[in-house]
Amino acid sequence: MATLTQAMKDMIGAQLSFLSTVDEAGNPQVGPKGTMRVLDDTHLIYNEQTGKQAWHNLHENGKAAVATVDHAALKGFRFEGTVEGFHDNDQIYEDAKAYAAERHLPAVIAAVVISIDRIYMLDAGPHAGDIVEGDPKPTDHFTH
C-alpha cells in the first residue's frame, strides 16, 4: 500500500481528478470524478452518481487509476489501486450523502473507496511516469 503526502492530498482537493478503469475485454474507460477526495493516508473515495461504465468495470475487476494534475504547475500524480469497498448502507455512505448535499450535487448511488497500491509522478519532464511509491509493475522496468 502507498501513502499520500500532504502535497498529493492538497492537489487532489484542489484539482479535478479523472478515474480510469478497464472492462472485461480490456477496453479502457476514463472520466472526470468531481467528487474524488482523500479518505485517509492510503485511500481515495468518490461518490458514484451514474452507475454506468466505471461502476460496471469496477464491479467486474476492481482495478482503478486516478490521475490528478495541476496544469499551471506542470505537476501531477497517478494513483493506481483496487476498490476496497462499495458503500451504500453505512457511515461512509451517509458521509458521502452529506458531502453531496452540502455541495448541491446529484444523489449518491454509493461511495467507492479505492486502496492506493502505487503512485506515479505525472510532472512534465524526464521524471514523468516514474514511480513515487508502491510495488512496481513489470512494465515499470522498461528501458528506452
Results as ranks from 00 to 15, higher is better:
residue 99 Y to G: 02
residue 80 E to S: 14
residue 110 A to N: 04
residue 129 G to H: 11
residue 140 D to S: 14
residue 16 L to M: 14
residue 24 E to M: 10
residue 36 M to E: 06
residue 69 V to W: 05
residue 116 I to L: 08
residue 66 V to Q: 00
residue 49 Q to W: 05
residue 109 I to C: 01
residue 87 H to L: 06
residue 129 G to P: 09
residue 98 A to N: 12
residue 89 N to H: 12
residue 122 L to I: 08
residue 35 T to Q: 04
residue 63 K to W: 00
residue 67 A to P: 08
residue 4 L to R: 01
residue 87 H to Y: 14
residue 23 D to G: 10
residue 90 D to W: 07
residue 106 P to D: 12
residue 106 P to K: 11
residue 91 Q to N: 13
residue 39 L to Q: 10
residue 96 A to F: 03
residue 134 G to I: 06
residue 49 Q to S: 06
residue 141 H to M: 13
residue 132 V to N: 02
residue 137 K to Q: 13
residue 89 N to T: 03
residue 16 L to R: 11
residue 60 E to H: 12
residue 39 L to C: 03
residue 111 A to L: 07
residue 92 I to C: 03
residue 132 V to G: 03
residue 29 Q to V: 06
residue 26 G to N: 04
residue 87 H to S: 10
residue 2 A to K: 04
residue 65 A to S: 15
residue 25 A to G: 08
residue 91 Q to E: 15
residue 8 M to Q: 13
residue 57 N to F: 06
residue 140 D to M: 06
residue 120 Y to P: 01
residue 107 A to Q: 14
residue 22 V to Q: 07
residue 53 Q to R: 12
residue 137 K to W: 11
residue 124 A to G: 11
residue 81 G to R: 05
residue 96 A to K: 00
residue 85 G to M: 08
residue 143 T to R: 12
residue 33 K to L: 12
residue 123 D to E: 04
residue 36 M to F: 05
residue 135 D to N: 11
residue 56 H to R: 15
residue 118 R to K: 14
residue 103 R to K: 15
residue 7 A to L: 09
residue 33 K to F: 08
residue 53 Q to T: 13
residue 61 N to I: 09
residue 20 S to R: 06
residue 91 Q to L: 13
residue 132 V to P: 02
residue 112 V to L: 06
residue 56 H to W: 10
residue 57 N to I: 05
residue 8 M to S: 05
residue 58 L to I: 08
residue 144 H to K: 13
residue 29 Q to W: 15
residue 48 E to A: 04
residue 39 L to E: 11
residue 41 D to N: 14
residue 21 T to I: 02
residue 57 N to H: 11
residue 87 H to T: 07
residue 143 T to A: 11
residue 6 Q to C: 00
residue 54 A to S: 15
residue 139 T to M: 13
residue 75 K to Y: 03
residue 50 T to Y: 15
residue 102 E to I: 06
residue 11 M to H: 09
residue 140 D to E: 14
